[in-house]
């Protein structure tokens, strides 16, 4: 067992982990931040996407020890300081960007990373960026629409398909 320390959602945290402990496991089991979902555990589905030092990573494909000293943001850190939903989260709610909701934490974290790099992405760019996030309800259309809306684009003309 070794000690790891990092900043998660702005708070300094530390804990004892095994060498093989994944970041997803540390977040969920040690910190009880269960918003980070583990869908496939084979790094394909993207439900576990979090931000590490400002970039999106799959928390199930990174060891907790690799995040030593890092700034980590999870879905629990996305709401505004007053507890209300962030722009992206609100857009997912407004545009029905979730059905069962299992993939949503990863979708929101990927969307946030995209909009950080590219504040006004095209529909094609959004779809390409979400290549590593799988929605098993196949609700992609409204997810893409929500992200376009979060970017401030007029989505009123985009029909629900």
């Amino acid at each position: 067992m070794t000690q790891v320390s990092m900043t998660v959602n702005g708070k300094a945290v530390s804990g004892e982990v095994e060498g093989r402990t994944l970041l997803s496991g540390f977040l969920r089991d040690s910190l009880n931040l269960t918003g980070t979902h583990v869908g496939c555990d084979t790094s394909q589905c993207g439900a576990c996407v979090v931000h590490v030092d400002g970039v999106a990573v799959k928390a199930c494909a990174m060891l907790a020890g690799e995040a030593e000293g890092a700034e980590v943001t999870t879905i629990e850190g996305m709401a505004k300081p007053d507890g209300s939903l962030s722009t992206i989260q609100q857009a997912f709610q407004d545009h029905h960007g979730l059905q069962c909701g299992f993939c949503t934490p990863g979708m929101v974290m990927s969307a946030a990373a995209l909009l950080q790099d590219n504040p006004n992405p095209s529909e094609t760019e959004i779809r390409e960026y979400l290549e590593g996030n799988i929605c098993r309800c196949t609700g992609y259309h409204n997810i893409v629409k929500a992200i376009m809306a979060a970017a401030g684009q007029d989505v009123s003309k985009i029909a629900a398909e």
Partner: peptide, 9 residues
């Protein structure tokens, strides 16, 4: 290569 999250690692 892969997807954005994979490319970051």
């Amino acid at each position: 290569i892969g997807d954005p999250a994979v490319r970051n690692r």
